[in-house]
């Protein structure tokens, strides 16, 4: 298994990368960590005409914190985000998602923007980005647009990135004190692709945002469950609570295009998501109350 030939353009800066991208045809792709793209190339499921290699772009390798946001440039490795003290303290759910995202060896190379741009339905970070209200910074030569995470993911391996554009950075709103969060998933082996998962962000103002992953082609907000979350009793595990969660989830998944594969049927994914939701909500509540106490 070897990739097909491609034109390789190493870039030293984001501007150079955007110039190269503009000069190439629409089958050109950005090469950052390559941990999702290169497997597809080895399997010849992807045959990009050219790769704009941004590994030499030091200006894309920064984690910046300003104005209530933490921004990750396109070359920030998953492992760098995971180990960053700012991220662990103020975006704990992002750090937790990165820890679940692949194995140490793939996280050393794989990037935060890369897992978002790849948009694998079973990836954790897209759902966490939606739950936390992250924003995508899309750049092309001479232009820049900001897209909310919720509008960014269009389907399995599909985003709103247009030819000539690249995901130059992603920024997450810093989580306020007294914010709770919960992230739960299940899969075939630890750190492998999730069969189902859920991300819960609980803001102090009583706003809860919940996003599922692995069960539909794109990360899926669950508005009914979000609305029900505040009324749920604090004890997460009772059968009555579980039933209410399952009911709200059923309403949210009405007519949804549920993933149904050999590894997990649509019915199983829906059932296990209800269980994971109960767990993630309980975790979020517990963390929110802990934050209050300290």
């Amino acid at each position: 298994m070897r990739p097909a030939s491609f034109r390789h353009h190493p870039a030293r800066s984001v501007d150079e990368a955007l110039t190269l991208l503009a000069s190439e045809d629409e089958d050109a792709r950005i090469l950052a960590g390559g941990q999702s793209l290169v497997p597809l190339m080895n399997l010849r499921m992807a045959q990009p005409s050219a790769l704009i290699d941004i590994n030499g772009c030091d200006d894309l390798g920064r984690i910046d914190e300003a104005g209530g946001w933490i921004e990750f440039g396109a070359r920030v490795r998953q492992r760098e985000g995971e180990l960053s003290t700012a991220v662990r303290a103020r975006l704990p759910m992002v750090a937790a998602a990165l820890e679940l995202n692949g194995h140490p060896a793939t996280r050393h190379r794989g990037t935060i923007c890369g897992t978002l741009a790849h948009a694998d339905p079973s990836a954790e970070l897209p759902a966490v980005a939606v739950a936390l209200g992250a924003e995508m910074v899309l750049r092309r030569q001479g232009a820049c647009r900001i897209v909310p995470a919720e509008a960014f993911f269009l389907g399995a391996l599909e985003t709103c990135i247009e030819p000539g554009e690249m995901l130059a950075a992603v920024r997450f709103p810093v989580q306020p004190a007294r914010a709770g969060w919960g992230l739960a998933e299940t899969g075939l082996r630890r750190h492998d692709l999730a069969l189902a998962g859920i991300a819960v962000a609980m803001l102090p103002a009583g706003v809860t945002r919940i996003c599922a992953f692995g069960i539909t082609p794109e990360p899926l907000r669950l508005p009914t469950l979000e609305a029900a979350a505040d009324d749920l009793p604090r004890s997460g595990g009772t059968p009555a609570t579980q039933a209410r969660i399952a009911e709200a989830l059923a309403a949210d998944l009405e007519g949804a295009d549920l993933v149904d594969t050999l590894h997990a049927s649509a019915r199983y994914r829906q059932q296990v998501t209800a269980t994971l939701a109960a767990r993630a909500l309980a975790d979020a509540r517990q963390r929110a109350s802990q934050e209050t106490a300290t």
Binding site: H8, P10, L31, G34, Q35, V38, P39, N42, D53, N55, R79, P104, A105, T106, H108, R109
Partner: peptide
Amino acid sequence: ATARACLTFAVQ
């Protein structure tokens, strides 16, 4: 740092 040699191009 550990990395997958099969997912890294030599030019990288």
